[in-house]
Structure formats: C-alpha cells, structure tokens
C-alpha cells in the first residue's frame, strides 16, 4: 500500500516579520500543517532566487517566500529590492514552464500569527491537490551527480 502524498514545502522567511509571525502562531497555539520547513534569513533582501532553485533541486514540491510588509522592513528597504527581484524571477519561471502555483510570495508581519497559520495551511492544501512535482522530479532523477548542499 502506498502512503498518501504529503507535500514537502520550503519557506524562506525574514527573521523580523514572518519568522516572528510564525513564533506568534506557535505561542498562540495555532495549529498549522507540518509540511512546511522554515528557513530563517535576516531579511527578504537576503533571499536569493538561487534559494528557490536549490529547494526545488532538493525535491521540494512547493516554495514559499515571505517577509515584512512594504514600509516595515527592519533594514528600511530590503523588501522593496526583494519585490523587484521576485517580479522578474517569477516571470522567468513562468516562461520556462515552472508552475507558479508552486512558488508563492507573501507579506506576513510579526503581529499576523493567524495569517501565517492560514497561509501555511492553504498553500499546503493547494500543493497537496497539485500532487508531487513530477516534472522536476524527473529532472532530478536524470542527474547522475547531484549538486551538494
């Protein structure tokens, strides 16, 4: 009997807003899907598109990127830079045929524990419906010498 599909999701979040939001979700004892692995970074400005590719390369079914709302960045404008980068990177992913439903972006503040939990749940559900990222898995399987972390 095969096990039911559980999506693997990687979330890249900034430490000042979304990670604090995740903390708030935890301390408020909100339950959310355990499929999300969080990687904490100092700022959304530090989240290179390479991270997204790396997560997919290592078999993620979905990737989330989240940080402070515009105007709230701890470093004043890291998120504005990130936003431009995401706009461009997203267009590129779309053009090369990577489904955009698998790479999501959001702003979640330190006060939005509820939004964090809801977002994790809804993305997990969406990706569960999409199923495993077979297209990418096919590429990974063809690679004889996978890149190291």
């Amino acid at each position: 009997m095969s096990e039911p599909f559980e999506p693997k999701i990687v979330a890249f979040v900034c430490t000042y807003c979304t990670y604090a939001g995740a903390d708030l979700a935890g301390t408020s004892r909100l339950k959310y899907a355990p499929n999300v692995r969080i990687v904490r970074l100092p700022c959304t400005g530090r989240i290179s598109p390479m991270f997204i590719l790396k997560a997919l390369q290592k078999g993620a079914d979905g990737v989330l990127v989240s940080g402070c709302h515009p105007g709230d960045c701890h470093f004043t404008h890291g998120n504005y830079h990130a936003r431009r980068r995401w706009t461009v990177f997203r267009a590129l992913l779309e053009f090369t045929g990577i489904p955009l439903e698998r790479v999501k972006f959001s702003w979640i503040s330190a006060a939005e524990g509820g939004k964090f939990a809801d977002f994790m749940n809804s993305v997990t559900e969406d990706i569960r419906k999409l199923g495993p990222f077979d297209q990418y898995q096919g590429l990974i399987n063809e690679t004889e010498a996978p890149a190291t972390l």
Binding site: P49, L53, Q57, V88, L139, T143, A147, T148
Partner: peptide
C-alpha cells in the same frame, strides 16, 4: 562557485535548466 554548489555542473537536464534560468535572471534588465 562550489561552496555551495548552486548549479549542477553536469550537463544533465536539471543543471541545464538551472544554468539557463540563472543566466537569464542575471541579465534581466
């Protein structure tokens, strides 16, 4: 760069996709 190795060096399809995405991204704009 290989610490970390961002892009697969072998010319298999995954590394080829990653390389071409990265090249295009770095030249956007």
């Amino acid at each position: 760069s290989n610490q970390p190795q961002w892009v697969n060096t072998s010319s298999h399809t995954l590394g080829n996709l990653e390389w071409n995405v990265v090249r295009a991204f770095h030249l956007s704009g």
